[in-house]
Write a protein that binds this DNA or RNA. Structure first.
Lengths: 362, 362
DNA sequence: GCGGGATTTGCATGCGCATGCAAGCCTTCC
DNA sequence: GGAAGGCTTGCATGCGCATGCAAATCCCGC
């Protein structure tokens, strides 16, 4: 190879080495690598040559120490089994990479408390924290605020603390789904919740049951699926084994909805949507495949991620900015997993969506 | 809240602040947070009290600067749509978190060159680099070696450079699948490749076609699916539209195999496995769901990740260690997507696996 | 009661870089 | 020709922590 050096840890070249070779001061080297710094064109070229010759790259750690900005953003993501989150992660990573940030990933155990892990991430002086599928303890929120670290909840909100968030239209989605299922003539509705104390599940449920109550319908049956494939399967079994089996189930996300679909068809021999209507939430991954063809309220990935990236960057610029709760609009994408009401669906682009007559803004 | 401080960037407490409050030197504070350092029990307690009072946490960036170990591991992962990788990512993250490392994630564009991004990650003085779905340019491999940074390829190997790797049994898997399909009486085989220059796809194909050739069978039809859902769908359409439609397809991974399954059943109205047998690779995610019930060569996630974690840690300990190519054994899990040969399958645990009579070790 | 070893502590320094400041240089204009 | 002003440059310093070394303290046995 072209690297005939000694066997192991070759000391990395430092700015001082480059300076020596280029015949300039270390400051000049620093300036050569700092966009906008005051340096003559010719000097910069000389430094760049020397840097290339030595294979020099500025040490991001040392730089962070002096600039006090790490350009690292801590991201917590759990439930990567749910296809929504890998997509989010990839989009977030690309969006932030494009702006010169990198992601320090951590994956809290669903079971265990995330706080100790978060602490480790804070030790890295992250410029911001994005929590994609974890709730934030109010203690930690306080710490972050005290330390001036912006925190953004993605697809979650927190009632404890005053923390910014980006979410889809959970409440409205739940309402629309109720309306849609009732319009489809279903009589025995059921809801499968995600994790009880997650804001997404609560809001979706609140929208769903709220609309039903307001319109004089019986409250739906209810089971808990914990946003987990197996748990959702079990929840489906309980529901479908009942003598008063529901004729429509709203499942709090698509990941669980696929599980329910599998159980309904392959264990109970039901036909969808003839025997059972199914509606999910997220409109992501396998839900779109023909095998599932899931009717689902869409959480538009890229708008949500773009919003998150923009908000995080703003918050880093101005840590004193007020908290914001951005809600990214979505729509109920109608496919084949639920009976389609005789009217009320309109085609938008290549998809069919549920278009309520007139809804009150929530 | 309990943090009545001023509005924004509260300067973080430093070791010196803690030292002052605790009435000791800054070194003592440092030692209190360094496991194994020489410090009296009582002093440590005093420091810890002061630290707690000030909300002090050692600054990981400053620590890294002096220790020259960042305890950060760069991880490149693309193709997160393929369910295998989120699972890998989560397991890797947990495994390394448990050992005190954190992951700096970066997501190279499949299209674009990963090198510039890798450079940025190297600037972070990562202790090691794990490439989960990206190939490494030999230039970069040289740089890493020169810098003494261990590199581990996960589910890839590289012919260019002498870089350690962890993979499944790609070659053997391909051979077993050939044998399995032939034993099932199939006559017109096809292979759908992933990305042409990825070692996984090449090895799987080499095993497949190698076995066929050795046993006097015609070479399979061949299409390319680029490890992409849409591209694999298109490849399937091309294959299935032929007048000499294949009666069995080996698809280079499960992600693509689900696409093929969808196309075959929902666009061509084929019944699986009666009209078409399908075998995938990875044994992950939706492949196991009843809707797909994919026969697939398993790449055991946790053994692979555990091996990767162990290898990375070793390499960090001893950068001069020789490169290793660890191959984690798997097995062909037999489900319903391919015709089952009259004999040769044995049940292992709750699964059925293909048990070749006697194979030569490859 | 005292010396010697073990333990604990503080001092000083450096990790690699960014940056305020002042000195140096060149251009320009009267 | 000289001075003012703009552009570059180097010097010195500090970011927050770890650590070698020497000083200080403690404990123990004789």
């Amino acid at each position: 190879m072209s690297e005939p050096r000694g066997r192991s840890t070759q000391r990395h070249a430092t700015a001082t080495d480059v300076a020596r070779l280029a015949g300039v001061s270390q400051s000049a080297v620093s300036r050569a690598f700092t966009p906008g710094a005051s340096i003559a064109r010719e000097t910069r070229a000389r430094v760049e040559d020397a840097a290339r010759a030595l294979g020099y790259r500025p040490n991001a750690i040392a730089r962070s120490l002096t600039t006090r900005r790490s350009r690292i953003i801590g991201v917590a993501a759990a439930y990567l089994q749910n296809h929504f989150y890998p997509d989010v992660l990839e989009a977030l990573s690309k969006g932030l990479q494009a702006r010169g940030y990198h992601l320090l990933l951590f994956t809290p155990d669903a079971a265990r408390d995330a706080d100790p892990l978060l602490q480790e991430v804070l030790a890295w002086q992250v410029d911001a924290l994005i929590l994609a599928s974890t709730t934030l303890s109010s203690a930690l929120a306080g710490q972050c605020r005290a330390a001036g670290i912006p925190v953004l909840l993605f697809n979650r909100t927190s009632r404890h603390a005053d923390v910014s968030s980006v979410t889809g239209e959970n409440l409205r989605g739940g309402r629309l789904i109720a309306e849609f299922l009732v319009a489809g003539g279903h009589k025995r509705l059921a809801f499968i919740a995600g994790i009880e104390n997650s804001s997404t599940s609560r809001d979706r449920e609140a929208g769903f049951t709220g609309w039903l109550a307001e319109h004089g319908h019986a409250p739906p049956l209810r089971e808990v699926g914990l946003y987990d494939f197996e748990a959702a399967s079990a929840a489906a079994r309980r529901l479908l084994a009942r003598s008063d089996r529901p004729d429509a189930i709203f499942v709090a996300n698509d990941h669980m909805a696929t599980a329910v679909s599998e159980v309904a068809r392959h264990e109970f021999g039901l036909r969808i949507p003839r025997d059972l209507s199914l509606v999910g939430f997220d409109d992501t991954g396998p839900a779109r495949w023909p095998s599932f063809s899931l009717t689902s309220f869409a959480q538009p990935l890229h708008p949500m991620v773009d919003a998150a990236v923009a908000m995080v960057c703003e918050m880093i610029e101005d840590p004193a900015a007020p908290t914001r709760h951005q809600v990214v609009p979505g729509e109920l994408v109608v496919r084949g997993s639920a009976r389609i009401p005789p009217e009320g669906c309109v085609s938008r682009g290549d998809a069919l969506v549920w278009r309520p007559v007139q809804e009150t803004v929530v």
